[in-house]
Design a binder for these strands. Sequence first.
DNA 1: TTGTAAGCGTTATCAA
DNA 2: TTGATAACGCTTACAA
Lengths: 354, 354
Amino acid sequence: MGTDDEMDRMHSSPTARPRRATSYDVARAAGVAQSTVSRCFKDDAKISAKTRDHILKIASDMGYTGNALARSLITQRSNVVGVIVTAFTIRNNPELIYALGEALQNAGNSLFLMVVENDDAIGASLQKAMEYPLDGLICCAQMPEDWIRQFANRGVPMVFFNRLVDSSLVDCITLDHAGAGRRIAEALYRAGHRSVVCVRGPERAPVSQLRVDAFRDRMAEFGIGSIPTVCTDFSYADGRRRFLDLVGGMKRPDAVFCANDQLALGVIDACRFDLGWRIPEDISIIGFDDIAEAGRPSYALTTVRQPIVDMAETAASLLLARIGDPDLPPRRIMVPGELIERSSARLANGSPPA
Amino acid sequence: MGTDDEMDRMHSSPTARPRRATSYDVARAAGVAQSTVSRCFKDDAKISAKTRDHILKIASDMGYTGNALARSLITQRSNVVGVIVTAFTIRNNPELIYALGEALQNAGNSLFLMVVENDDAIGASLQKAMEYPLDGLICCAQMPEDWIRQFANRGVPMVFFNRLVDSSLVDCITLDHAGAGRRIAEALYRAGHRSVVCVRGPERAPVSQLRVDAFRDRMAEFGIGSIPTVCTDFSYADGRRRFLDLVGGMKRPDAVFCANDQLALGVIDACRFDLGWRIPEDISIIGFDDIAEAGRPSYALTTVRQPIVDMAETAASLLLARIGDPDLPPRRIMVPGELIERSSARLANGSPPA
DNA sequence: TTGTAAGCGTTATCAA
DNA sequence: TTGATAACGCTTACAA
């Protein structure tokens, strides 16, 4: 017969006060030392099968589970990986979160998610990430240089996702946004488009900058220096509205390059429902990302595919590899974007539209 | 002059081995007791402004940050909330994650995210959630009764999101899926539709069951007992394909009710691009969720709005309230779905289609 | 106002 | 194979 204390816990009465059983409780109940209980839950532990079974049975009766906090404190390893994402990324690439979660979980890690409104609002999250002893960090947002150094100083490996940071202290995986932007400029130019406009994302959104700036630079090399451009919040509604504002005061352009697919969808609907322009006969529209809707027949958007799930898996393995070996040389992976030609743009050689 | 050890850390040499400064390190450098350092970081602490400033300065020089793990261990409070979501939820309602993250973060909590493939694959995540001393859990998936009891026994508050669980141990917030399903049946019937079909989600997906079963039951009450129904994986592509299979062998139905908007979009495209049926003249289509695409002119889908962001915020405050006071009575909130009439369905009174 | 010391629940290092 | 015992980095009485 055990103490009342033990009885309570074993029969788990409805009013049991919520205090979880500790390895010490199990040890007392099993009549062994606490350290022996601890050993039961390690694979390589030297422990007799008999005591192990005995303890395991009692532990399960008491509903004992190890305390990850206490374990992390002593092992100096939390098996928790932080992930920082912006609202936009979460909205537009929900697959990223899922893929990251799966990859991390499959490797025995947990995901500590920090959401931020945009790249500039990352401060508070970083503070949290510092206080919490994370094993690593996957950051899908820009980070100030001094924060990067601080994490590095503490030995917290980081990989940046779609943010190419100029530091030898971290790993990066990013789509070749600029390359794809140039590629689109070339395709559009070759097909005869001369009067083009751009619909960007937010002023300071890195991927928007990369994509659109490269596009504009390449166009400039072709002698097309003046490209009316408008900023948006990356959304369908804003893309549609601002595009209308933009073209309201000008002659119809030949083509429009949008910093992402949501914007392109908005522009397509602006053409179809607000302006009565035919796509692609009157105007060519190109997006970026290849989100699910882009492939549907109602839009058939020509765009650049960003293999977000593959990239997420790569990001996770980069991080896990570095957690395993912090001395790995810094790696920066640049994934080429694939131009997916559907029917929202005339890309074949030809004369410019009427 | 301090020891070499201290110098290293203070000047943070490039090769500094990654060991984060502890409150003890700060105490040594400041010439005070460790507990005094600890006190500096509490609001109500009794400590002289002078020593506080002195310590704070040194702490910041050393890049000291509290260790959340150690703190949680002693305070028995982690300020971490677990969130369990299925792949489908994350894909189809990415806003949920963001809203949850924001609400939790604003209240000073962190988000521990566990993704699961579907409601049946929740086991491993629950194990993690048990070992990690979470302050609470928001579960957007079904959970076996005995797990619920275990969490309750440990005093971990839980709120279920869109899963109505029959337990007085937890809080729930859910849309009134069944009510909305019935409402749609009524609207469709009143408008004269008699030959209807359903496109469901996965066999065992709770929200799909609730929505479709209620719809079918209500239709049965109207004397419409035979409703051809097909299961899908909740995706656009599967909705489109299976709908085609379903109607391949039958006379054109008057109306189709889809368990979510993605499916409805697929069905619309099947009608438009594969079958050449006009919407809503030939066939009425109704979805569920009111995702962003549903409102766009290319689809103009009639659907039921699920105020996912409001619900997320409510879920967070339910949980936070219970963390603050565990003795609160169990609450179950049922949010009514709002029927959004657009133009994919004829809902006015009238005769059935030709 | 400050310092001392006892935990929190583990893992890890020794002896036994 | 097991049992003491010392960390891990903090908070919190209690003493000074």
